[in-house]
Design a protein around this nucleic acid. Structure first.
Lengths: 140, 140
DNA sequence: TTTGGATGTAACATAACTTATTACAACAAG
DNA sequence: CTTGTTGTAATAAGTTATGTTACATCCAAA
């Protein structure tokens, strides 16, 4: 299993909804999205639920229910999707506190924190450059 | 448990070995490194084993055995450490092949592959800017 | 007002990964 | 030889990712 595919699933779902809307279908059910992603509808509902909490999609209940974009594909970057679905930091610190009597044990965590923060920023900058509209265009 | 701490452990181990050598101790045992990182010596042996396979440290067997740097701290970047200990890509594709009858299912993987590649490159560029010597200096 | 189809979420199952720990064969310096 | 350390296997416990079933809740439309 290893690295998770949450960003992949969420971007796929959003891009497919964007294409369906361009074709005139305003609301898509989780079953319809799941058919394109080829996974269980509950996985899609959980992913789209994250995106809804981040304000990227809207949901409608009752008969004729489904999911719809809350913004245009041009206004949703992969960084926003990443922030919506990803919880863990890129790199973890020690599980147990290092030995504070050692100069390295004392100093390493803030030092690595700065390095990891810079790496995270550059990753996010790159993800911020691509939008759902870009992904949709390149898929076709 | 969540995100792994392999990069953290390996950088800590290397930095501590670098400091010990500067203080005149040429060879460190996995027990001595483990005492600073505050973990089991086997964890350290596995991490240093990865670094040895990448040519970053040397090992000596028999009585008086231990670990030593194979290069100067200035010549080891966190990117080299990252490559030595990290196997998984940053983002995974779908677990199951998406629906190839859908235009998005057909096109999404190469498109995301390009985006993920760019994100990975920028992360690596940032990790390549910091050396073990930098980490050691900032720890003191 | 009823109904039917979809969401939201809990519960559970499975597989993989991470860290920790014990045990021990292989190894080499003295 | 002796002794201390490495390299690695085996095992365990905790966590996460994904998939699946089940069902209460919701609401547009009939």
């Amino acid at each position: 299993m290893a690295a998770n595919s949450r960003l992949t699933i969420a971007v796929h779902a959003l891009t497919w909804i964007a294409l369906a809307q361009r074709r005139g279908q305003e609301w898509l059910t989780s079953e319809q999205v799941a058919a394109s992603v080829n996974t269980n509808a509950v996985i899609i509902r959980r992913s789209l639920g994250d995106l809804r909490r981040a304000g990227l999609v809207e949901v409608r209940h009752g008969a004729g229910a489904g999911w719809s974009m809350a913004r245009t594909p041009e206004d949703i970057t992969l960084l926003q999707v990443y922030d919506a679905v990803e919880r863990e930091p890129l790199f973890a610190m020690h599980h147990t506190e290092p030995n504070l009597e050692c100069p390295i044990g004392r100093g390493i965590r803030p030092v690595l924190g700065v390095v990891y923060e810079r790496a995270d920023q550059s990753l996010r900058r790159e993800l911020g450059r691509a939008s759902i509209a870009d992904v949709l265009r390149d898929c076709l």
